[in-house]
Structure formats: structure tokens, C-alpha cells
Design a binder for these strands. Structure first.
Lengths: 360, 360
DNA sequence: TTGAAAGCGCTAACAC
DNA sequence: GTGTTAGCGCTTTCAA
């Protein structure tokens, strides 16, 4: 055994404070603070002295104290339902990218699509007095809405524009997205349409897409022939299973609309394996436009949900944030940004109606 | 236009404080504080009064002030390189699940595999004085290591055990993982082995797997026949492209080892499309054991990287955290948990050597 | 069971 | 350019 002798001082029991740096450098706490924050005029000489001392001691400022004193917290609360599908990570990346050019920092909370979790997470985050909140969706518990309204900071609700925002909102209309896809499918000549989705009554965006979808079908005198829902497990595997099941049960189906790309991709794999003629005998479409699927031999028709753009815009609104966010009692001052989702036909959705099984 | 009359008071300009609740309830700040934190004995009567007042006002406590006063912050810094691949979200979920049963809350920072980002993110997080740090990998800049050592809180380095931890470590040996896979492949009778990976010199775990892999091959008198690396883009698509490319360049290859499941899956798709006999003519294996791939028609051979288990264990260590984490100058008091990755053969790796092209 | 006083580590505002 | 003073909103500690 060798006796280890430290050349650096041992780990301190008491965290270092400004005072320590002050004493080590022979400069007042205030000036040290100024140097460390690059605020106010400090002579180059003392600046160097202070920096050296801080680095030497390994001083890490205490933001808790700083925040309390300055009444400023450079944190942005980002509240999303899930991390496990590919959609929110994409939004997060965009948010981070924008905030990287500001003093702001995102802090992520996950709700698992549970309103009570959302309420709790929101409460926790608000208790840190963040500079803004980015939160997915427009549906929140009354308590959550009350908290958001009275927080006195910019709030941006993202992903969805179908509803009444508290402050600002950035997203797409999922109802419209569902409608657009239905219209495209009908125009392509498909008539026996099935739907596959998630068993998530609380996924309001999926619900709205479905509503828009059936609404547009109804306008064309059609309705969904059959449907199936899943919960849990590998989305790809579930998509495969559900597709097999629904096609067996309702063999007349000539199109399947999936509530997300992942189960759509599973369905596509099933069709390829089963030798089903796609998009001739059966058309397929998903939702989200996730890049993941670029590696498949066939491109699933889908709709870009503008995830990156949404994240970017939301972060920008927060970053601007100077403006008053919610006025007292009057109309909301928030901004409204509705993005346009675009259909990507891929090759699982035939383009010309003339090729359809049901020529018009 | 209708004149909106508020039944609830308008959003306050000044955030509410304990004092407000104190005044509204006619109870001292101290007692209000006790009620809100469920600390100490408070009569049921005052308790109800206080709770009612707090709820009525919509009071949200200020954790900044609370943390400063109590010198306690129930935050756990979790620092990971990326959110975009499926591996870290899985770890995060496990961490959250464990911490949900404690007062602790994870706060995530992403480094993009950049040491300088890591250093910055770490500094930011430490300045909030968290109760612990969970950080991916054992390789950090000297400055980062110094910060971790002197933070005076439990540190858990995760994912990898090949190296010297600062405090605790939970992970698998990636070198060993690479070795195990090589041995399995060789035992199965494959001899002309190619490698496909990421262009990430800073992904130390991928590097260690590769080193272990080649080391074990060398022991069997073999070396990697050809290799290819990618950066950016859809991993699935890249896997497909790289596989086509390497097989064209080195047609003698009878096995491809991928540094992750995603590119492996892309490779598998290529093989299926190209009509290549897998695992007869060509074997394939990936790494991570991601569930995503369960929906494929063939199961890619892979190795479980114990992501969930790692997250769980790490969180547990932090939660126990009471123990002194780094002793002064002496040996680290941290715990060491090395998990055993297991090979999942799937069906892209033939099992019996006797079936090999090169019978032994 | 409740309250009063002191102070956590920093920064705003003002002096010098 | 630098230092001094007074809090930020809570919790700790101690007294009642």
C-alpha cells in the first residue's frame, strides 16, 4: 500500500463560497461576483487575480443564492408526455438548439400522458420560478391551467392548435391533419378504410386526428370499416400484429391509417412479409414523418408533424419573453403559430385515382 | 365585446410568498411553512386553515428560497451524451421510476458526446447544488473530474465499467461485451468478419467494444476483414447503405458486427431485400438489445446492454446517498456494480458450428 | 403547538 | 473601479 499524498487540497466539507474566493484573491465579494458574471467594469488586473483564485480553488457559484438575490432564474420548464417515442426528443433537440444561444436552459419534465402527473410536474417546476414554460398540448387540469395563468411568465403550449391557449401556442391542427389525410386517401380511390391506433384516451392529439379523419370520410360518404387499438409493447411489433388481425377480420379493407409511423412501419413489414400488394391492393399511411423509417425498402406515406419547427418556434417565443405574457383579466397577449403539416406520399399510397380499384 | 369580469383575482404582479398565506390565514409564517412541508406538530385546525388559504391564493412555494435556507436540493443531475438513440431514454425511464418513490427529482443534461459540452453542462448543474450526479461514462476532462471529486455529493458513473471511477460506477464492461460477441461469432464458424460502426472517436464505449472484439478475434487468429463508419442521418438507412457497400467491396465477408442495433437492423433489411441467406451465407449481430426491433420478421442477434438495470441501480445508489461519497484523499468509498450483458442469438447468427461454411 | 430572530450565499443599489 | 449595506423567501434554532 502506498500512502497517497495529495498535491491538491482534499475535498472540502463545506462548499466554497464567494467569500472564499474573495479572501483568496484579496478582492471584495462584490467585485468577485462582478468578475464571475462579467458585469460592470472591473480592471483587467483584479479580473485576472479573481479568475485565478476561483479556478485555483475550484469554485462553483451557487445559483440558488444567486437566483434568490437577483429574482432571476434562467431555466425554462419543458413539460412533455413521453420520451419513448421519437417525437418529443426531436422537439427537445430543437428547443435546446435555440436556447443554446441564450442564457436560458431547458429543464424537462415527463408526464406519461397523466393529467395528475402533469399537475405535479408543473407544480414542481413552477416552484423553481422558471423564466418560461413550454408545455405539450392544450388540455390541462383546471388546477394546472390556474397555475399557468398566474405564473406571470411566458407560457407556450405546443404541438396542437385545436383549442384555447393560455398564452402562446405553436403547433399544427391535428383535426385538420386527420382531415387532410382522409381527403388524400379518398382522392386516391381507396374506399374501405381501417384505422389502427393507441389505446390512449388522454392522447388528445391522436384523438383529434381521428376525429378529423372520420369527419372528412363522412363528408365523402364513407366511414371507417374497422379499427384496432393497442397499448404498451414494441410499437413496431404491435403494428405488425394489429395489421394481421384487422386484415383477417375485415379482408375487404383497402387502406389502413395508423395513428403513428411506428405502428405503420410494423404494418408495412407485415404486408411485405405476407406478400400483400402495397399500395395496389392495400394502401398504408402513418403520422409524424419520423426519419427513422428512411431505411425501409418502401417509404410509408405519412405527414410531417413539424416537430423541429415547433420546438424552435416555441423556444424563440420564450427567448423573446420580455413581453408581458398574460395580461390581467383581458385577452391573452400570446402569439399563435399554426404550422402546416405536409403529406409525404412515400410509396404506400397510390397517387392517381385512375389506378384505383374503384375508378371514379 | 363583452366586458370580462373576473371571479378569480387577476394574475398577481408579485409572486405570492409565505407571508401572503400567513396573512390570509392569520397564522405565523413559520407555522404555515410547517404545514406546507408536513413537518412538526401542527393542530388539525390550523392545518386546515393554512391549507385552505394556500389553495385559495394559489400559492406555489419558492424552492429557491427553501433550498438556500435548508441547504438541501432534491435534484439529481443526470448527464448523458444523447437523447436521439434509444439507449439513454431507456436509462432515464428507469432512473425516473426509482426516484419517483423518493423526494428526489432527475434533471437531465445532454452533452452530444462533446467533452467541452459535458464540462459546461456539469458546471451548470453543480451550480444548482444537486444531491447527486449520474453521469454517463468514465472519461471526462480533467476539469470535469475535479469538479466531480470536490462536489461532495454522491457521483455515479454509468454504462461503462472499464476504467477508474470517481466514486460509484454501474455498468457493463464493453470490452468484455465485444470479446463475448467475437467469441460467439467465431464459435459459430464465421471467419471473414466485417465491422460497421459510428464515426465517433468520443464514443468510448463503442471504441471499447471494438477493441474487445478485435482482441478476441486476434486470439482466434483472425482479424476484421473490412470496416466502415458513418456519421449522421438515419441509422437504419445508413446501416443499409454501409452493408451494401461493404459487401460489394469485400464479398468474402460472412459476418457483420454492427456497433448498434439500429444500423444492424438496416443491414438486415438490406440482406432481406437482396435475398442474401441470413444467417447461412452471412451472419449479423448488433448491440444494445433495443425492443424496437421486435417487430422485424427476423430477430437480429444482439447483446443486452442492461440499460434499465443500470438506470435503476444508479438511482438507488443516489437515493441511498446518505453515505459519504468521496473520502478525503483515501480510496473511493463508492460502490461498483458490474452487470452481465447477455447475448440474444435471435436468428441472424447460426448456432451450431457444424453448420458453418468452415467446419472445424 | 406556536412564534421570533437569525441567516443561507448571493446580487441590487447605492456610496466612495 | 471598488466597496458597503440590505435584503431575496424561506428554514433553522431556540424560546414561549
Amino acid at each position: 500500500m502506498t500512502a497517497v499524498t495529495d498535491d491538491k487540497p482534499a475535498a472540502p466539507k463545506r462548499p466554497l463560497t464567494l467569500r472564499d474566493v474573495s479572501e483568496a484573491s484579496g478582492v471584495s465579494e462584490m467585485t468577485v461576483s462582478r468578475v464571475l458574471r462579467n458585469r460592470g467594469d472591473v480592471s483587467e488586473a483584479t479580473r485576472t487575480r479573481v479568475l485565478a483564485a476561483a479556478k485555483d480553488l475550484g469554485y462553483v457559484p451557487n445559483k440558488i443564492a444567486g437566483a434568490l438575490a437577483s429574482q432571476r432564474v434562467n431555466l425554462v420548464a419543458v413539460i412533455i408526455p413521453s420520451l419513448s417515442n421519437m417525437v418529443f426528443p426531436r422537439v427537445l433537440t430543437a428547443i435546446s438548439d435555440v436556447l443554446d444561444n441564450t442564457p436560458l436552459q431547458p429543464v424537462v419534465g415527463v408526464t406519461n400522458y397523466l393529467p395528475e402527473r402533469e399537475e405535479k410536474v408543473l407544480y414542481e417546476m413552477l416552484s423553481w420560478r422558471p423564466s418560461g414554460v413550454i408545455i405539450a398540448g392544450l388540455e390541462h387540469s383546471e388546477a394546472a391551467k390556474a397555475m399557468l395563468r398566474s405564473a406571470g411568465i411566458p407560457i407556450v403550449e405546443i404541438m396542437d392548435t385545436d383549442g384555447t391557449p393560455i398564452d402562446s401556442v405553436v403547433g399544427i391542427s391535428h383535426r385538420r391533419a386527420g382531415r387532410m389525410m382522409a381527403e388524400t386517401i379518398v382522392k386516391a380511390g381507396y374506399r374501405k378504410i381501417g384505422f389502427l391506433g393507441t389505446k390512449m384516451p388522454l392522447d388528445h392529439r391522436a384523438r383529434k386526428r381521428f376525429e378529423g379523419f372520420t369527419e372528412a370520410l363522412a363528408k365523402a360518404g364513407l366511414e371507417v370499416v374497422d379499427q384496432e387499438f393497442y397499448a404498451g409493447g414494441s410499437a413496431l411489433a404491435k403494428g405488425r400484429e394489429m395489421t394481421a388481425a384487422i386484415l383477417e377480420r375485415s379482408p375487404e379493407i383497402d387502406f389502413l391509417y395508423y395513428s403513428n409511423d411506428m405502428i405503420g412501419a410494423g404494418g408495412l413489414l407485415h404486408c411485405l412479409d405476407a406478400g400483400i400488394d402495397v399500395p395496389g391492393r392495400l394502401g398504408l399511411a402513418g403520422f409524424n414523418g419520423i426519419e427513422l423509417l428512411d431505411g425501409f425498402s418502401m417509404q410509408l406515406a405519412t405527414m410531417d408533424s413539424c416537430r423541429a419547427e415547433i420546438g424552435r418556434k416555441a423556444a424563440e417565443i420564450i427567448a423573446q419573453g420580455a413581453e408581458v405574457s398574460v395580461s390581467d383579466g383581458g385577452p391573452t397577449r400570446g402569439r399563435r403559430v399554426e404550422l402546416n403539416p405536409t403529406i409525404r406520399h412515400g410509396n404506400t399510397l397510390r397517387l392517381r385515382p385512375s389506378e384505383g380499384l374503384y375508378p371514379e
